[in-house]
Design a protein around this nucleic acid. Structure first.
Length: 269
DNA sequence: CTGGGGATGGGGCCC
DNA sequence: GGGGCCCCATCCCCA
């Protein structure tokens, strides 16, 4: 992921030690090809006219929060982020058509294109606050609300494009951007929800790789990818199989490992 | 098949 | 309240 604007000119001559990456906060946006950033018609516009969200609907959307139930952790291991071990995250892994190379679709996003569709790790389907169509679903909804009682006292701001809901308007607005995709790459037309995503994407065009591995000098355009890469240098990787104790640099590798062999007898998940 | 790189998305925190 | 940035997570593709 591209938080890459942390690009520093000096990266070319000075390898950023990953441990020092935090120091790269001094942005130098001018570093980016302005032509690609399209000062006038892209970034600029996207930040102003992007929110097609109709705030007037908010009052009507004020509903008891029916929380998005957290994915059941299936992690046999002691990972730093156990809550997301859900191997079921791939439940929506097929609908990937909207993921990339989507033409910028000049039309406003409120056309409900849902270009971001593919990776809904966020269990949108679990919330049916807006469309409860059957008695059974009503029951489910009630159960869900009951289960979410701790949150029921908070307001819920619902996205009109999807069933997601938020407890703050700011969070909702941020989410809305994932529908409106206001930031468009002038080079390829790909649209993004946030400017820094766009900047990171632009790196794929410019070839900039400001994040270098201190161990092998390999460079990456994205800090997260560097972080993942650093795992490959670690003797003991971050993700460990609870059955065979084998470690992996990525959770996805561990999941593959678990689902295709080693742990099949005990960790069928 | 496994490991790893590339690219991207979202929520949350901080300023 | 909004934007910037970080961290985490995930999918795709290739060696």
């Amino acid at each position: 992921m591209p938080r890459s604007f942390l690009v520093k000119k000096y990266f070319a001559k000075q390898k950023p030690n990953y441990s020092e990456l935090e120091c790269y906060n001094e942005l130098s946006l001018e570093r980016y090809p302005l032509a690609e950033l399209a000062p006038g018609d892209n970034m600029a516009t996207c930040f102003t006219a992007s929110l097609v969200w109709d705030l007037s609907v908010l009052p009507a959307l004020y509903l008891p929060a029916s929380s998005l139930e957290p994915s059941p952790a299936v992690g046999p291991l002691d990972l730093s982020s156990p809550s997301s071990l859900s191997s079921s995250a791939s439940s929506s892994g097929e609908e990937d058509e909207g993921r990339t190379s989507d033409p910028p679709s000049p039309e406003p996003a409120h056309t409900h294109k849902h270009t971001y569709g593919p990776r809904q790790r966020m269990k949108c389907t679990g919330v049916k606050s807006l469309a409860v169509s059957s008695p059974r679903e009503e029951e489910v909804e009630e159960e869900r609300e009951a289960a979410a009682s701790p949150l029921a006292t908070r307001p819920a701001f619902l996205c009109k494009h999807c069933p997601k809901e938020y407890t703050s308007l700011g969070a909702l607005k941020m989410h809305i951007r994932s529908h409106t995709l206001p930031c468009v790459c002038t080079t390829c037309g790909k649209a993004f929800s946030r400017p820094w995503l766009l900047r990171g994407h632009i790196r794929t065009h410019t070839g900039e790789r400001p994040f270098s591995c201190p161990h092998c000098n390999r460079a990456f355009a994205d800090r997260s990818n560097l972080r993942a890469h650093l795992q490959t240098h670690a003797e003991v990787k971050k993700y460990q199989c609870g059955v065979c104790s084998r470690t992996f640099s990525r959770m996805s590798l561990l999941q593959k490992h678990s689902s295709s062999g080693c742990c099949s007898s005990s960790a069928t998940g």
